[in-house]
């Protein structure tokens, strides 16, 4: 089961996310939207990524949802008071608004996080290239994802080196501020200057040829892909139909 979910073609999974986006805007209320979260969690469990999914989701969304309820609950314009305390009154209109808003946020966030947990970026890039995305675009995406962790490590190395040279990183604001220039300055300048050589390297790898790029890794497209896509399409048609009829 785990393998079949992970092996789904990237575009199929992307269609799933798109389906969620469209359907949560058509279906009224907030129950369906909130329900997307447990569905995503089930898929995450089956794909073996439940732990990372949950830690990412709850870390990112919990505070926002909470604050929305607090702020909109108390300050959204409305008449129906549910609870009153001190100078604040919780209103029904605010609560309703919060439910509608947060349910959509939950659904979208859950589906996007799930997508990236069950899809390897490498595979997504291959699928994009097959669909005609230019080399330059896919290069920028892959290169960015690779270079960020690399530079973060570099920062730590530079900080240690500067600390051993006597640069202070704790103390008053001025002391800490003085650490910024030696640490960040050389890192930024050398990183940008190095791009000149990197361009030569890309040229040497025939990056600028006009030929259509191939990929050494071939992504399989199985029968499950077709099934999933058909199911999503049918569900979408059903939802739109129901939405139109009312």
């Amino acid at each position: 089961m785990k393998k079949s979910i992970l092996d789904l073609y990237p575009t199929t999974k992307l269609l799933g996310v798109l389906f969620v986006f469209i359907s949560i805007l058509i279906v009224p209320g907030y129950a369906y939207q909130y329900a997307i979260l447990p569905i995503c969690m089930v898929i995450a469990l089956l794909a073996g990524v439940l732990q990372s999914f949950c830690s990412l989701f709850f870390k990112g969304v919990t505070l926002i949802v909470l604050f929305i309820f607090i702020i909109q609950g108390f300050f959204y314009p409305g008449e129906t008071v549910l609870w009153s305390g001190w100078i604040f009154s919780l209103k029904l209109e605010g609560l309703n608004y919060s439910l509608l808003l947060t349910s959509k946020i939950v659904a979208i966030t859950a589906s996007i996080i799930l997508f990236f947990q069950i899809t390897k970026t490498k595979d997504l890039i291959i699928a994009l290239e097959k669909m005609g995305t230019p080399k330059k675009v896919t290069y920028v995406i892959m290169s960015t994802l690779q270079i960020i962790p690399q530079m973060r490590k570099q920062l730590n190395v530079i900080m240690d080196a500067q600390r051993s040279r006597g640069v202070e990183t704790e103390g008053s604001l001025m002391i800490r501020a003085k650490a910024i220039v030696p640490v960040l300055g050389t890192l930024i300048i050398s990183s940008f200057e190095n791009t000149q050589e990197r361009v030569i390297t890309l040229e040497s790898r025939a990056f600028t040829t006009q030929r259509k790029k191939t990929n050494v890794t071939v992504l399989p497209k199985g029968p499950l892909d077709t099934i999933v896509r058909i199911v999503l399409l049918l569900l979408l048609v059903l939802i739109i139909w129901k939405g139109v009829i009312g």
Partner: peptide
Amino acid sequence: DFTLLAITMIPIGVAINVVAYQLMTILKM
């Protein structure tokens, strides 16, 4: 504007954003 050189600058720019923020966090600025 999107020359090969400009293309290689984009990932660096994004990474510098990340790293600058990281440094500010470490230094509690």
